[in-house]
Design a protein around this nucleic acid. Structure first.
Length: 919
RNA sequence: GCGGGGGUGGCUGAGCCUGGCCAAAAGCGGCGGACUUAAGAUCCGCUCCCGUAGGGGUUCGAGGGUUCAAAUCCCUUCUCCCGCACCA
């Protein structure tokens, strides 16, 4: 690097030390309602990767921004410290998960500090400490008391490689692979602990509509996951087996049910397998629930259709899933594609009972004899839409929806039923490194909750074994029953780590509290999290479980919030050449290297200005270098002028207070002042929206303008330049905090290298206020457009007219009466605009000119919009005149139309000055 | 299949909700110029077509429609991406 580099290492170190010494990011317990900004806490895997850096730069930038705006901010960090990788790593390295985890935490914490993330480390939480996980246990017992915990024998997803059970959510794709190690998942029957999240299924689903601060994609994914369906539950009597429950959403098609199907693991199927060799062979060998082809075997039994009394054949079929509905279904080949395929294969009758709704037009034509529905041809393909019933006896002619209601009412034992795809949450894991489930198994009393006073149940020392280390910890396992005092054994399963993360935002509120998981009163004040940021991979699991926990805590613990996260941002990926960075692809860019080479500020700024936070973007070394150069130039610019600025007026320049510059005295300074306001107005709005990329572009643009000013003018006004630099530095401060602090101190005449203490205590951006803009965005937009259009017009004229070397350029701003006329035209709804205009004396006086302009206005009537007023346009153009002079190397005169010759002024309109160029 | 989000100038990508200063931001790439011994960096322009005074023409996946006016609203259609899925 060259003359433009700056000593990022020294600067970053200096300010990181300063912040730490000043405890700058501490949020005291007594603040009323801080803005709660949270990034998803990381799993301490060893090193920070780019995804982390992006995630936490977003939250840090937003937290810093809110702080500069004067908010109290809560911005904590912690560790999702339980989990399988620690166990595997411990085995590999012959250590234990605890030491390995804490090593990782130390490393990552150091990296976070070197990135300059401003966390309240006094609130740090680490889920693998008894201080934290005791509350998982406590919550488990509370859930139990409220009837939200269940122990049942369940077929579970078992990963043979991880030797543990997985939640449904942790099984990926059609191939059913373990989310961690991609091993095909097997099924096992085990006694498992479940949290009854299904009790909250309706609320979890319905409340999604109100999560307006969440991305639609995530909301939709949760809706799908919960998968609520309304239908009918009814029973078919299967000969020899009594009533068998089936669920259907299409009871209107029941007259077309031509067979009945059972899942291979349905109790009846299993019973049949014992005596029927064909059924057994099918279940054991042929059934392939993952295959595309529906397969099945006839049982020889029949089921009685509860409506028609008809006896239909019963099959065991592999496309029937025991987890869906009741594991048994009435099949209607005519109106269901899957049933149709199966019926075709087995030669089962396909009987249409729904016809398309006759078209309204047809109905009218055939009015007299009532439009007969046309029975669809279902031999080739099923007709799956709703329609009108046919071949359905007394129900003929009803529309599907009405028929469903009527049939559900009429059929004996049938009832409306709701099905969910959401299952209860199995939290048992046969692993060591997690929260021990606080249960004791007594031969006499059965499973007994560990009493609150005996919590936490702490993990024993790690034992390196192939199975579950807790099972091998004999001494630990042996205990007495809390109820009868007899000998008993501890539960050896631990909890899914998603339990830990389901309530951790609450723990930050009172991380050291010993009486409860969280301070209720403060949590009520501080929650919910105002802005949550993390990866889309948690769209369902973590975010759904957290919502569930929050609702339970609201119902039973007095929490006054039912949702944990008000606004959610799912950040995009950091890619390299369009591909996700991953170790296996070997295309990983190390944040550490970037920080060492360019500094944390460069890394942060590059990431934030590269793209909107929710978008994927490509890492580019070139982009990083150019960002680094930008910071170098900014630093040099401040350095060059700092002394003059500080000397001129430390109070004014440093604080960025309004500077009084008139266009008359110093048009260029006025232009710069306007641009400072413009940048502040826009960047502020963009920071509010978390569109850092736009905000930062504005800040960078401002620096460019300031540099042009300093270069173009012989002696730039230190007050003007100082105000601009001070604003620019603060606009960048959320993203490049170290350099911002350094430069802010310099602008106030301090030398942080000589006098770090006072620079820290007096100069910090942290203590400064966000810059204020003297204009609104709309004015900025109009002003910039005017200047830009005018410059472009001059260029065009010069170009089209072939003017080689302009002698002088006159810019004539329209007379006030035209602005008045424009305003009247916009407000007016009169047919004859000219008449209305001529009613104004001062316009009528203009004679032909007024009539001509009136006609123009009339012609574009609907498209008119208000510009700045004449004097504002005049000022803006005067201030910008230097840009034109600089470009064409010719003097530019900006005048009002009143002060110039009529023939030129005639062309001037609001928003569009007349231009006259002398060759 | 169901649900969600897209298709914009050489590329990336804003705009679309709330129609009109939108031939359409910004960045990249390309071209020209300034600076420099030179390169790099930086700065100033240009980058759909035509045009000797700011003009005109044709564009925003395709086709229709609404409107004085459509990239923006409506309908149809093609296509890409993401999530879920033998879901009863």
């Amino acid at each position: 690097m060259t003359d433009e580099g700056y000593d990022h290492a020294a600067i970053e170190r200096r300010w990181q030390d300063a912040w730490e010494a000043a405890n700058a990011y501490r949020t005291p317990d007594d603040v009323a309602d801080p803005t709660y900004v949270l990034g998803m806490y990381p799993y301490p895997s060893g090193k920070l990767h780019m995804g982390h850096v992006r995630n936490y730069t977003i939250t840090d930038a937003y937290a810093r921004y809110r702080r500069l705006r004067g908010d109290d901010v809560l911005h904590p960090m912690g560790w999702d410290a339980f989990g399988l990788p620690a166990e595997n790593a411990a085995k590999e390295r012959d250590t234990n998960p605890r030491d390995w985890t804490f090593d990782c935490i130390e490393t990552m914490k150091g990296q976070m500090k070197s990135m300059g993330f401003g966390y309240d480390w006094d609130r740090e939480i680490t889920t693998c400490t008894p201080d934290y996980y005791r509350w998982n246990q406590w919550l488990f017992t509370r859930f139990h008391e409220e009837g939200l915990v269940e122990r049942r024998d369940a077929a579970v997803n078992w990963c043979p490689s991880c030797e543990t059970v997985l939640a449904d959510e942790q099984v990926e794709g059609e191939a059913e692979l373990c989310w961690r190690c991609d091993t095909p998942v097997e099924t096992r029957d085990l006694e498992q602990w479940f949290l009854k999240i299904t009790e909250y299924a309706d609320e979890l689903l319905d409340a999604i509509d109100d999560l307006e601060g969440w991305p639609n994609s995530v909301r939709q994914m949760q809706r799908n996951w919960i998968g609520r369906q309304y239908g009918t539950e009814l029973s078919f009597e299967v000969e020899g087996h009594g009533d068998v429950e089936a669920f259907t959403t299409r009871v209107d098609t029941i007259h077309g049910a031509t067979f009945f199907a059972l899942a291979p693991d349905h109790p009846i199927s299993e019973e049949l397998a014992e005596t029927d060799a064909d059924v057994r062979r099918f279940i054991e060998e042929e059934a392939d629930p993952d295959g595309d082809e529906p397969n099945g075997v006839e049982t020889g039994l029949t089921a009685e259709n509860p409506v028609t009394g008809e006896a239909i054949p019963v099959y065991v079929a592999d496309f029937v899933l025991s987890e869906v509905g009741t594991g048994a279904l009435m099949a209607v080949p005519a109106h269901d594609e899957r049933d149709h395929a199966f019926a075709e294969k087995k030669g089962i009758e396909i009987r249409p009972v729904i016809a398309p709704e006759p078209k309204a037009a047809d109905a009218e034509e055939a009015d007299a004899e009532e439009a007969e529905p046309t029975i669809p041809d279902v031999e080739e393909a099923a007709f799956t839409d709703d329609g009108v019933l046919v071949n359905s006896g007394e129900y003929d002619g009803l529309d599907s929806e009405t028929a469903r209601e009527r049939l559900t009412e009429d059929i004996d034992g049938a009832s409306e039923a709701t099905q969910y795809q959401l299952r209860d949450w199995g939290i048992s894991r046969q692993r060591y490194w997690g929260t021990p489930i606080p249960v004791v198994h007594c031969p006499d009393c059965g499973p007994v909750m560990v009493p609150e006073d005996d919590l936490p149940v702490e993990l024993p020392e790690f034992i390196n074994t192939t199975g579950n280390p807790l099972d091998a910890a004999e001494e630990w396992k042996e205990t007495t029953c809390p109820e009868c005092g007899g000998p008993a054994e501890r539960e050896t399963d631990t909890m899914d780590t998603f339990v830990d993360s389901s309530w951790y935002p609450l723990r930050y509120v009172s991380p050291d509290l010993e009486e409860a998981p969280f301070d209720l009163e403060r949590a009520n004040d501080w929650m919910p999290v105002d802005q949550y940021v993390g990866g889309i991979e948690h769209a369902v699991m973590h975010l759904l479980y957290s919502r569930f926990f929050t609702k339970v805590l609201a119902d039973h613990e007095g929490l006054e919030h039912r949702e944990p996260f008000e606004n959610l941002l799912a950040q995009g990926m950091v890619q390299l050449e369009g591909e996700k960075m991953s170790k296996s692809k070997g295309n990983v860019v190390s944040p550490q290297r970037i920080v060492e080479e360019y500094g944390a500020d460069t890394a942060r700024l590059f990431m934030m200005q590269a793209a909107q936070p929710e978008r994927d973007f490509d890492w580019s070394e070139e982009g990083v270098r150019s960002t680094n150069r930008f910071l170098g130039r900014l630093q040099a610019l401040v350095e060059e002028h700092a002394d003059a600025i500080a000397a001129a007026d430390a109070a004014t320049a440093g604080s960025g207070a309004a500077v009084d510059v008139s266009v008359e005295d110093d048009p260029i300074a006025a232009y710069v002042t306007d641009e400072v306001d413009a940048a502040v107005a826009i960047a502020t709005a963009e920071y509010d929206d978390l569109t850092f990329n736009v905000a930062l572009r504005e800040a960078q643009e401002l620096v460019r303008t300031l540099r042009s000013y300093a270069d173009y003018v012989d002696d730039p006004d230190p007050a003007v330049l100082g105000r601009g630099l001070s604003a620019a530095v603060r606009l960048l401060a959320p993203v490049t905090p170290h350099l911002a602090e350094e430069l802010y101190a310099r602008l106030q005449g301090m030398d942080p290298t000589d006098d770090p203490e006072s620079a820290v205590t007096e100069g910090v951006v942290l203590a400064a206020a966000w810059p204020e803009a003297a204009v609104d965005r709309e004015t900025v937009r109009k002003r910039r457009r005017l200047v830009e259009n005018t410059r472009e017009d001059v260029r065009q004229i010069v170009d089209v007219a072939g003017i080689e070397d302009p002698e002088s350029i006159d810019v004539v701003v329209a007379p006030d009466w035209k602005y008045d006329a424009l305003e009247i035209a916009i407000d007016s709804d009169a047919d004859n605009l000219i008449g209305e205009l001529m009613a104004e004396d001062h316009i009528r006086e203009r004679g032909d000119a007024a009539a001509a302009y009136g006609q123009d206005l009339q012609a574009e009537r609907e498209a008119l919009s208000m510009t700045l007023r004449g004097d504002a346009e005049y000022e803006a153009l005067r201030a910008a005149a230097w840009l034109i002079e600089r470009e064409f190397d010719a003097p530019v005169t900006v005048v009002r139309a009143e002060a110039t010759a009529d023939d030129v002024a005639r062309n001037a309109e609001p928003g569009r000055p007349a231009i006259d160029i002398e060759e």
